[in-house]
Amino acid sequence: MRLDEVDAFATSLPGVRRKGHPGRVAWYVDDRLVVREDLPGTLLVRVPMAEREDLLACHPDTVGVPPRWEAHHKLQADLAGDADAIRDAIRRAWAMQRRGDR
């Protein structure tokens, strides 16, 4: 998946706005982070813990959790991985942030 594809998908979700700058672009809903560019070729995606575990089990070649994020509602998605898995993670992040769940 390319960042322009992430942008097209994320901004297709109601209320999502692109912010940030080149090299650190991010997408927010209701001023809450949904997804942002992380290390080159990766995304940081905010997802509920229970759903994060589901995504990790279903898509271990696409998503993971660096040790520094283990206690947070975050996962790292590899842009070279399964685009459907990345879209699923972004959709779940959008739903969580839109509801205001933390």
Rank of each mutant, 00 (worst) to 15 (best):
L44H: 08
R46Y: 01
V47Y: 03
M49V: 06
A50G: 02
A50F: 00
E51A: 00
R52A: 02
D54F: 02
A57S: 12
A57M: 11
H59Y: 15
H59E: 12
H59S: 04
H59W: 15
P60Q: 06
D61G: 12
T62Y: 09
T62M: 08
V63H: 13
G64D: 06
V65E: 03
R68Q: 14
R68D: 12
W69H: 03
W69S: 12
W69R: 03
E70Q: 15
A71P: 02
A71F: 04
A71D: 08
H72E: 14
H73Y: 02
Q76T: 15
D78P: 00
D78Q: 11
D78S: 09
L79D: 03
A80W: 01
A80G: 12
D82V: 13
D82H: 01
D82E: 11
D82C: 10
A83K: 01
A83E: 13
A85S: 13
A85T: 12
R87D: 00
R87A: 06
R87S: 06
D88H: 13
A89H: 10
A89N: 14
A89F: 02
I90V: 13
R91C: 01
R92Q: 10
W94S: 08
W94T: 05
A95L: 09
A95Y: 04
A95G: 03
A95E: 05
M96C: 02
M96D: 04
M96T: 03
